[in-house]
Every structure is written in structure tokens, then in C-alpha cells.
Nucleic acid binder design. Sequence first.
DNA 1: TTGCACGCTGGAGTGGGCTCCAGGTCAACC
DNA 2: GGTTGACCTGGAGCCCACTCCAGCGTGCAA
Lengths: 144, 144
Amino acid sequence: MLDPVSVYTPGQVAEETGFSLDTLRYYERIGLLEPIERNAAGQRRFNDSHLSWLGMVRCLRGTGMSIAEMIRFAQLVRSGDGTIEERIALLESHDREVEQKIAELREQQDAIKWKIRYYRDVQALAGDPASCQAAETVESDASR
Amino acid sequence: MLDPVSVYTPGQVAEETGFSLDTLRYYERIGLLEPIERNAAGQRRFNDSHLSWLGMVRCLRGTGMSIAEMIRFAQLVRSGDGTIEERIALLESHDREVEQKIAELREQQDAIKWKIRYYRDVQALAGDPASCQAAETVESDASR
DNA sequence: TTGCACGCTGGAGTGGGCTCCAGGTCAACC
DNA sequence: GGTTGACCTGGAGCCCACTCCAGCGTGCAA
């Protein structure tokens, strides 16, 4: 915003993004990051666009996109404006997958909550002398 | 419920649960399933309690619990009623993690949706002759 | 001028979670 | 008696996404 081009050392980028140095190098090696410029000593110098791309990567990784698909996306980005439609399609498809994953998590979470309540009930009954073997059937109906 | 004890072949269980035969054997090997009874020929015969436990496993796996933690849970279950409190604690802790994961997914999904809208805008402007290089900055601010 | 921090490379190793395979047993059917 | 199909075992292999390492180079501060 202020500097015409801010540059960052690998250490700073690791600090900022949470990706390890090794992971950053790995991402460059496999083409998830374009080749990073170097200083005279051969050390990487990242800039803001790398940072924001890494933000995108974090977001896509965090939502379960595979490295292979992120590389495909990266290639589209590098191929210029002609690929915007394709990028939208890719992100929309991913978005739908995320939506589905969330729904699935919610459903499974409900089953877990149900199980917790079940255990609570079993435990509440444990004080009741007539139900010594109640817990024997504890595992005989789990989720769904 | 009707049969005193229904038994199922490995093939049926695989069909029913979606776990592969190899995965079922693997789960038994590592102790996520207790040792399964065998028929005279040495072939596994599952029963309803295995099925429901596998339902639980599917649920915990699906929500991201590691195999190691599921084995711990399995051990608690096998150790009898004295461990119910501990099981509740384990499930509640997992439940919180799931909650957090869902929140994170939602946040990241928002960023993805934002990006999609961004691309849409860029594309809408593409018809506008004055914005030939607008898309040049497409990647310079991604999520958050 | 030495010592340290920081970074470099190529390549090997790791951990998790399966997945595959060769060679074998058994039961049922033709 | 032969074939097929379902299943068995121990052990190796696989894929993904890193992570670690040895050995080396630079630049600065004491």
C-alpha cells in the first residue's frame, strides 16, 4: 500500500502465513508458487502478491482442496484473463463440495451429540439399582 | 431385534458400511475392531454390534478424528461402564473440534464466494473497452 | 576472522491411512 | 474331479503432503 513493492524474506513469510520454510520451498518446487525472485545471494524475496496468493492457498487447503487441484488453479491464474470462466467454474465446484462437507459434518456432529446424551442418560441411571446391566447395550446403537 | 443374533459376512459388511474388506481387516488388526468371531473355516462373522460400532467409526472418521484417538475410544468402550465419564469427555472435546472446524470452513467458504464474485465483476467489466488491464490485478488480493 | 543467523540445494525420510498381492483354504455347484 | 467365488494371512507397497538433513554460501556484528 505504501511501498511500491514490499519484499519479504522467507522467514517473514513463514511467520506471516504459518507455512513452514520447507513448505514454502516445496510449494515453489511443485509449481503451486511461481518461481520466486532471488536476491544477489540467491535467497528468495517474496512480495505482496505472493502473500495474497498464499492466503488463497491457505483457504483452499483449509477447505480440503488437493494440492493437485490447487496447482491446476494456479496454472489457470498464470494463463491470464482467458481462464477466468474456468476459474469461476473450479471455485464454484469447490464451493459446492465445501457446502456438502459442512452438511455432512453437521449430521455427524448431531450423531455425536446424540451419543453424548445417551451416555449421560446411562450414567444418570447408574444410581438406579434396577439397571445394573443397562450399560451393557451401550454400543449397540450408535449413529444414525 | 428379531433374530437373536444376526451374522454378516465380510462382503455384506463391506457393502453395508462402505468400508472395504481390506479396511475392515486393517481395523481389526490395529484394534479399532475387537477380534471378530470366525466360523469353522476361519472366516469372519460380524454381528449387529459390529455394524453399529462401524457406524460410530464412520461418524468419527468423517468428522476428522484420527485412528489413534478412535482406538483410545474403542478401548474405553471395551473397558466397561467405569469409563463412561471419560468417553463423554472425549466425545465432547471432539464435538468442540467439529464445531470449530465448521466455523473455519464457513469463514473460508465466504472468502471463496467473495473471490467468485470478484471474478464475476472482472468478467462483467471485460466488455467495457476502458478496462483491458483490469484483470491484471486479479490475484493481488485474495482471501481476507 | 570468527561466529552466527539465515538461507540454499538435492534428495531421502516420515506418518497416516489405507490398498494390494501371492499363495492358500474351503464350500458349492457342474 | 474341476472350477468358481468368497475369504484367509503376512507382508509389502502406495499416495499425499509434507519434513528433515548434510553440506554449503552469504552477510553482518563483535
